[in-house]
Design a protein around this nucleic acid. Structure first.
Length: 624
RNA sequence: GGGGACGUAGCUCAGUUGGUUAGAGCGCUGCCCUGUCACGGCAGAGGUCGCGGGUUCGAGCCCCGUCGUCCCCGCCA
């Protein structure tokens, strides 16, 4: 028999009670986390979003409440009325924040019962992701998930406040809009009113925010939902949230300062101090030092070990002397057996025209000096695992040989990136041995978001700006230069003259923010002049007609007094994921989709009725 | 589109070389218990071994297919 709430009002949250509340009359409401029945004495752990308090139901004190206590089961929703009392010294539970007190109940109301869920929110996460997502409402009751979403709220709020303080205005842009030029597949929404025509969901508010600059808003931001119809990953969902911003008359410096301010504010909200300014490196430097444009700096970078080898060495080892020769080092891995090393070989990307040497014993037999010098240059101790990565003359891949003074060629980048990818994969595999990621786990675990205290995150989180990306990338398949970014990215002013003649030499005025091996965001100074925009379209092989059809409205807008402007967008979900120490975005998104793009709780997507299709002028033609 | 891992009770898992009636812990149900907090004790229920097909005297185990979840490549500036 269930009780009505009546006039009863909750006075406190379960997790807030302390010894100081002793003697106070309280009313708590929540879920039965656990029940311990000792016959004439029953303990209930009552849980709400704040935590847990112990309710004592004594048959002598409250025969009625005790009788209800016998009937309740875990996850029943109850209200407990009673007095806070200090526990006797031997009954104190030091493991609980509320362990010094308990509620001596005078009344227990059973507000609702429950079906038995397939798992208990009182426990750790179960392994079965399918069940967790189907019963997401139960999963979200778990303390860990409650913590993640409170963290997400705190971070988002701090970011909003920071941007508002810096003069940014939050403006909402349409969800039903037109295909945007972000390169991913669009989600389309059929128009009922306009047969055969479709809206697209935004991949980002890109064009709208640029137009807001033309409109004179000067500084815009939005915590914006974005949609991309691409396959999912642990760090990629179909819909995700970006901290999106744009500002007028900026130099790159200004964008960096704004981002560093709000990101530090977000980290501070999570109880972590991030030192400023963030370090910066160019794209070429990032490739040389880490073999990737999103370096994880918690591990040693790549070392140029060319000088460890003589020309004869290189010839004997069949290494291309014209390409980089680098060593990657994973600390404290210990000596690997031949089988262990061979198991690692699939982790090396064969398609980059590079080869590797991971058998130092063998190398030392043939080339003792080179082997010793290479290890020494890489700063390797005996326990460190070192791999040499170099160009393979036997597997010369198709790539551009175009080489500009002071810039990396495509081939060089390929060798670096083969080394960088191998480094990342090995680092993941041997994480337990080198322990370089533990510092991040420790900081995340010890951070106390709402305490007002902040712990030093400088060793745990490594933000880094990557600048001076190439404007174009050589596409092996088509043999053409393709845009590396969306077509509104401004080239460097002094590279502008080479746009058509030497596309490979042109650097883009864009930048990425990376942290711990994750791309957090990406932005650029935009093109604000119609003549430059036309040149870019031309060099990208986009015809006037196509440009007009896809973004004619935007080209028009550009002609009406467009200020120089630029901005950036950071993945909010990823920021929260890092600070929650979560292995997947699903842990920080309330209702995420599976790797096959299914929402298991609501069961979406589904077919729709013929009537709905008819109204939308849609006919479905499935491949048989 | 491709590669890999997993799928046995509600959950976490074990299951030997293919061999009788498929096990454990937790959870669940009932009874007992006034100081537990992962309470304890006694008793009990609970299985289409993801699904379909095949091999075999015999399949949880072998083979083929399929479905689902996860991870990765492609894709996502």
């Amino acid at each position: 028999m269930l009780d009505f709430l009546g006039n009863l009002e909750r006075t406190h949250l379960c997790g807030d009670l302390r010894a100081a509340h002793a003697g106070q009359q309280v009313v708590l409401m929540g879920w039965v986390n656990r029940r311990r029945d000792h016959g004439n004495l029953i303990f209930l752990d009552l849980r709400d979003r704040s935590g847990i308090s112990q309710i004592v139901l004594d048959k002598e004190l409250t025969p009625d409440g005790h009788a209800k206590g016998e009937q309740v089961r875990p996850e029943y929703v109850v209200a407990a009325v009673g007095k806070v009392r200090l526990r006797s010294a031997d009954a104190i539970n030091p493991k609980m924040p509320t362990g010094e007190i308990e509620i001596e109940a005078t009344q227990l109301l059973v507000l609702n019962d429950t079906r038995l869920a397939p798992f208990s929110p009182a426990e750790e996460a179960i392994q079965n992701e399918e069940v967790r997502l189907k019963y997401r409402y139960v999963d979200l009751r778990r303390a860990e998930m409650q913590r993640n979403f409170r963290l997400r709220h705190d971070i988002t709020l701090a970011i909003r406040e920071s941007l508002s303080r810096q003069g940014f205005l939050e403006v909402e842009t349409p969800i039903l809009t037109k295909s945007t030029p972000e390169g991913a597949r669009d989600f389309l929404v059929p128009s009922r009113v306009h047969p055969g025509e479709f809206y697209a969901l935004p991949q980002s508010p890109q064009i709208f925010k640029q137009i807001l600059m033309i409109s004179g808003f000067d500084r815009y931001f939005q915590i914006a939902r974005c949609f991309r119809d691409e396959d999912l990953r642990a760090d990629r969902q179909l819909e995700f949230t970006q901290v999106d911003l744009e500002m007028s008359f900026p130099r790159q410096e200004h964008v960096f300062a704004v981002v560093e301010d709000f990101l530090c504010a977000g980290f501070a909200a999570a109880g972590v101090t991030l030192p400023r300014p963030f370090p910066r490196i160019t794209y070429d430097e990032a490739m040389q030092r880490f073999g990737t444009d999103k370096p994880d700096m918690r591990l040693p970078g790549l070392t140029d070990v060319r000088s460890a080898f003589t020309e004869e060495n290189l010839a004997a080892l069949q290494i291309d002397p014209a390409l980089p020769i680098v060593a990657l080092r994973i600390p404290s891995v210990g000596e690997l057996s031949r089988k262990e090393r061979e198991d690692n070989h699939p982790l090396f990307d064969q398609k980059k025209g590079a080869k590797f040497i991971d058998d130092f014993k063998r190398l030392a037999k043939g080339f003792p000096e080179a082997a010793a010098k290479a290890r020494e240059m890489a700063g390797a101790s005996d326990a460190d695992f070192v791999v040499i990565v170099a160009g393979d003359p036997a597997h010369h891949i198709k790539a551009s040989d175009t080489k500009f003074e002071g810039r990396l060629s495509e081939r060089e980048i390929n060798v670096y990136s083969a080394a960088g990818n191998f480094r990342t994969e090995l680092a993941k595999k041997y994480a337990e041995r080198h322990g370089a990621f533990n510092v991040t786990d420790d900081v995340v675990r010890n951070a106390d978001p709402r305490s007002g205290k902040s712990i030093d995150g400088s060793a745990a989180f490594h933000p880094i700006w990557i600048t001076d990306f190439p404007m174009f990338e050589y596409d092996l398949a088509s043999g053409k230069w393709m845009p590396a970014h969306h077509p509104f990215t401004s080239p460097h002013e002094h590279d502008m003259a080479n746009l058509v003649s030497d596309p490979a030499s042109v650097r883009a005025n864009c930048y990425d923010l990376a942290m711990n091996g994750l791309e957090l965001g990406s932005g650029s100074i935009r093109i604000h002049r119609k003549d430059v925009q036309q040149q870019i379209f031309q060099s990208l092989g986009i015809s006037d007609e196509e440009a007009r059809q896809r973004f004619g409205f935007f080209l028009d807008a550009l002609e009406y007094g467009t200020p120089p402007h630029g901005g950036i967008a950071l993945g909010l979900d990823r920021i929260v994921m890092l600070l929650a120490g979560a292995p997947s975005l699903r842990e920080v998104i309330a209702f995420p989709k599976t790797a096959k793009a299914i929402d298991l709780m609501v069961d979406a997507p589904t077919t729709v009725t013929e009537q709905q299709l008819k109204e939308l002028h849609i006919r479905v033609a499935l491949k048989s």
